[in-house]
Design a binder for these strands. Structure first.
Length: 230
DNA sequence: GAGGAGATCGTCT
DNA sequence: GACGATCTCCTCT
């Protein structure tokens, strides 16, 4: 029997303890946050808010799963073979959005890490919807009523392609966007939430360097992609 | 619930 | 021309 949640209200919903978020009061993460190695950034991004401004409306989710990619030293990373027209953002300043199109269907969002010239990054894999839930569900083609279960809400943003669709992230619109700028319509916020336990597992969907524990998630969180872990 | 396969197109060789 | 940092649908158990 799936867990019942509180009724969806217009514009936003708080359906889980993790979802209690102060969106407008959240401090924007500065460039220095991303000017570090991808493993550190990936771990510290868990629990932060990914926020999109759509006109006068905000959409937001709390990051519950991500992966570190270690640039030219990482056989699974897009930057492994050096700079190309697709991945040039990774070699640029930290805190920029690297958006790529995959499998003919999906966009995936990363954020660049380390100083300019070093191509480490973090892939956002899943978030828990916390604000604008109904609007994000619509972007995903989902009809979620007042009795929506966590199982149904997971379909909004549990997976990199789903997250991007929910937040209307595309390469054309967002690639190379500065996520640390107050003028940006896409940024990361810190409202003080700290996850109690973080788990590390091998990354998903890759064929090289498959054993390294570079996927990070909030333990026992229902919105992690795939099976709940930790 | 688990596993398999198709969709679909940008990127790189 | 092959492959891919995915998702969805379908079938089987």
């Amino acid at each position: 029997m799936p867990r019942r949640i509180a009724a969806l209200k217009p514009g936003d919903v708080a359906h889980d303890p993790l979802a209690d978020a102060d969106i407008r009061g959240a401090a924007i993460l500065p460039r220095e946050f991303f000017n570090r190695d991808a493993i550190t950034v990936a771990r510290e991004l868990l629990g932060k808010l990914l926020i999109r401004r759509e006109g006068r409306r905000l959409l937001a989710g709390r990051i519950v799963e991500d992966e570190a990619y270690l640039g030219e030293n990482d056989p699974a990373a897009h930057a492994y073979s050096g700079r190309t027209p697709r991945n040039f953002v990774l070699f640029g300043p930290p805190g920029r959005a690297y958006v790529y199109f995959i499998y003919g269907n999906h966009y995936c969002l990363n954020v660049s890490c380390m100083p300019e010239g070093e191509a480490e990054c973090v892939l956002f894999r899943a978030m828990e919807p916390v604000f604008g839930t109904e609007a994000m569900a619509r972007e995903r083609g989902l009809e979620l009523g007042p009795t929506a279960t966590v199982t149904q809400l997971r379909m909004i943003s549990s997976g990199p392609g789903r997250m991007s669709e929910a937040l209307r992230i595309t390469r054309e619109r967002d690639n190379n966007k500065d996520l640390t700028s107050r003028r940006s319509d896409l940024w990361l916020g810190d409202d003080g939430f700290r996850p109690s336990t973080i788990v590390a597992t091998p990354r998903v969907g890759i064929t090289k360097a498959i054993d390294r524990p570079l996927r990070f998630a909030i333990a026992q969180n229902a919105y992690v992609s795939g099976k709940k872990i930790g």
